[in-house]
Design a protein around this nucleic acid. Sequence first.
DNA 1: CGTTGTTGTTTGATAGACAAACAACAACGG
DNA 2: CCGTTGTTGTTTGTCTATCAAACAACAACG
Lengths: 153, 153
Amino acid sequence: MADQAVADDGNGVPVPGVLDGLLGYRLRRAQVAVFADFAQTMSDFDLTPGQFGTLALIAANPGLSQTALGTALGIDRSSVVPLIDKLERRHLVERAPHPRDRRSHALHLTPDGAALFDTARSAVARHEAHIFAPLAPAERETLARLLDRVSGV
Amino acid sequence: MADQAVADDGNGVPVPGVLDGLLGYRLRRAQVAVFADFAQTMSDFDLTPGQFGTLALIAANPGLSQTALGTALGIDRSSVVPLIDKLERRHLVERAPHPRDRRSHALHLTPDGAALFDTARSAVARHEAHIFAPLAPAERETLARLLDRVSGV
DNA sequence: CGTTGTTGTTTGATAGACAAACAACAACGG
DNA sequence: CCGTTGTTGTTTGTCTATCAAACAACAACG
């Protein structure tokens, strides 16, 4: 009746069991594995995954406002404040005055930030290639296409 | 030089840009989309995704210890305590005495817990079918296989 | 010029996780 | 039988990340 239990006396590590048939669970498991490796790679640069995403977003959209950054990251604009605070303290990001709106801050990467982002970016690319190594190039393309359709893109 | 920026004056919501080429990013995006839908489905039963996973794990491995549950969930055993506390207060899970070890607790679903898990489980199955609807059955099979290989399973 | 909306910020609250320490108990060696 | 060592659940403290609400400064618009 039980799917595939390994409960025994409480010592053995049990397996998910019922969840295994769910595609969403397998998607989550793969994402967790990739994300853990990604976080490990980022720790070499003293960056969290969220901080790397922030740098990438600012690099691609220089002069971004904090509110726009927050909505792009899917977090509240009040949560953006301490995020930028830390990066600014490390001189990776700067709050420049917006040319036409004295309320908002135009976010830019400093030269240090751009340099760090560039090396981190290539490290990510290397680890991407490493973690998706069990897949042939054509399979990666297939995976990417299927994932995008699930995301509704 | 910028990949595909939409920064303009700070009003428009920018897009990831550089991240878009990364397979890991697209994997994460798909997982976030699925997870959000999953969490929404669970909220109808006043369950968090973690609580549903706990119920599933106990259902598949009756008599599980709290430490074994923690390692299966990937969390510390001290974090298991408040998790089980809440479920026990709602009479969904019970801490039964372990037959051979008076230190450990044998976790079981109560009849209420088993019933709630069963209805939640079928609701998840329905929403799985709904969210993966844009994929043909053969494509879902392909996706599952590719994801498992990434997970190292 | 006055009203209304927006931006960044502060403050408080919440949730989730870990680390360290503890009593109760198990396991094992002598 | 006894003492040491390891394990289990629990408590406590701490840390991080998130949101909600309120605020001053400013923009936009009638």
